[in-house]
Design a protein around this nucleic acid. Structure first.
Lengths: 250, 250
DNA sequence: CGGGGCCTTGAACATCATCAACCGTCGTGG
DNA sequence: CCACGACGGTTGATGATGTTCAAGGCCCCG
């Protein structure tokens, strides 16, 4: 494994094209809207209601269960973990959210957030008032469509890990999925850092932390990957994808 | 257990109030829109693009993986099962959909359906062209809001069963959840029929069919419920809810 | 150095899956 | 009308996968 640094902040792949977009060049949300067929003056409207938040530091919460719902947020940099505490006091990790991904969508139905969102490292956000973006969406069909798709995609994603899969399949799917999501944002697909502790990965995959340890070790012994503490390199991507295939359904 | 018949079709609790609504009195979708603040002329527009489908008989598909996505659908009567077949040929049940619930939401992001939907008994549907309803939603903020909430709710629901729970917790949550959803549509909350075979319940809960059998039997022996083939009566709802609490998070 | 997370490793255990057989019900056809 | 067969469901015995418990190691930071 080389000694190149592991990326933690957005590399700015969404850099502006030299015009007014400079004021939010790393905000993937508006970028996506553009590609949905929104013109630039519409994007101006969108940016009128954006609020840049951060930096938040590891352990600081973006929102908590029961906070009044007022906005969704796009992650610009860092990793956000969403989770709930059930009535027996057990934590359940719902997901990890990387740059370009949106949190708070599950709060739209209801007037408070149904889960907690916490920064796992240094996090930057774009906050979008939901009432305002809804109103805007009635004027901008492209924005409405983008929101619909965003919500729809989350349903699909939530259903993925819900299936009945082995520890190996889950782990492989987690790694390949993470790789794909990071790659879509311009990060290296085969070398990245696990920004979350093993306990969170385990909890998310519904495994014991010890199992995560053992599976990772076995994957390494089998030449599928190299892992050193939180640094990871996918070595045999093809075999990992084969393992992950039943889960990811590509 | 008495010999009253188990309801299978919508009892018409959403019956019209004597006016133009009669033409779709059992369509919960439009009813919900009304309560979202839509006026009746708007509802007329909505009904212009509704297509009533059915009856479909047990085993007939509403749509299949890869079918071009063109519409979402509200279940008016019967039970619809959604599922996928993974690359190893294993089936994964994603959910059961009762009257008043909407299917196809996970297809919005993409131009084909990502899952199969099949009738478990005699099913009636209201079909809504999604392109058309999207356009309408830009004119009717209440409709847009309803769609957002519908999508958001599905995200939350998908996350529920995804957690790390015991067979007992899963089973209790399934039964209580089903009871609540039926009750919300005017069905008896404590006496209802399991419209799906044990294998489907097991698959949905990520258990073996044998485990479902055993848990149900133990629940019956413990006085939690009475079960006779597909007919079910919740006897000790309080204890079932306690068991289900970690999953349902009420 | 020393302490505290976080992670790993090993051994015993539990839960649930698997395998195999059987049963009850229903539908069909003799 | 009854025999048969198929399907769905139940039950028991066995076993695998992953959890739990306990201990130790590594790294970072004081």
């Amino acid at each position: 494994m080389s000694d190149t640094p592991f990326p933690r902040l957005s590399p700015g792949v969404l850099a502006d094209d030299g015009d007014a977009l400079t004021f939010c060049s790393t905000c993937a949300f508006s970028q996506a809207c553009l590609s949905q067929g929104m013109d630039k003056s519409s994007l101006q409207d969108l940016h009128m209601l954006v609020e840049h938040v951060g930096p938040l530091h590891a352990g600081e919460h973006v929102f908590r269960v029961g906070d009044p719902f007022e906005a969704i947020a796009a992650v610009r940099a860092g990793t956000v973990k969403t989770y709930v505490i059930d009535r027996d006091g057990r934590e359940h990790v719902l997901g990890f959210h990387f740059p370009g991904e949106v949190i708070g969508l599950d709060a739209i139905d209801g007037d408070t957030y149904p889960c907690n969102a916490v920064a796992l490292d240094t996090v930057m956000l774009c906050r979008f008032s939901f009432p305002k973006i809804s109103v805007l969406a009635t004027r901008l069909p492209g924005l409405q469509q983008h929101l619909f798709r965003l919500l729809s995609r989350s349903i699909g994603r939530a259903a993925l890990l819900a299936g009945d899969f082995s520890a190996d399949e889950r782990m492989a799917a987690f790694l390949v999925g993470m790789s794909e999501r990071l790659a879509a944002r311009g990060f290296s697909p085969n070398r990245f850092a696990l920004t979350m502790p093993r306990t969170d990965i385990a909890n998310y995959l519904r495994l014991a932390p010890e199992t995560v340890s053992r599976v990772l070790k076995r994957f390494q012994d089998d030449g599928l990957l190299q892992v050193d503490r939180r640094e990871l390199e996918l070595v045999d991507r093809a075999r990992l994808e084969t393992l992950a295939a039943p889960v990811l359904r590509h």
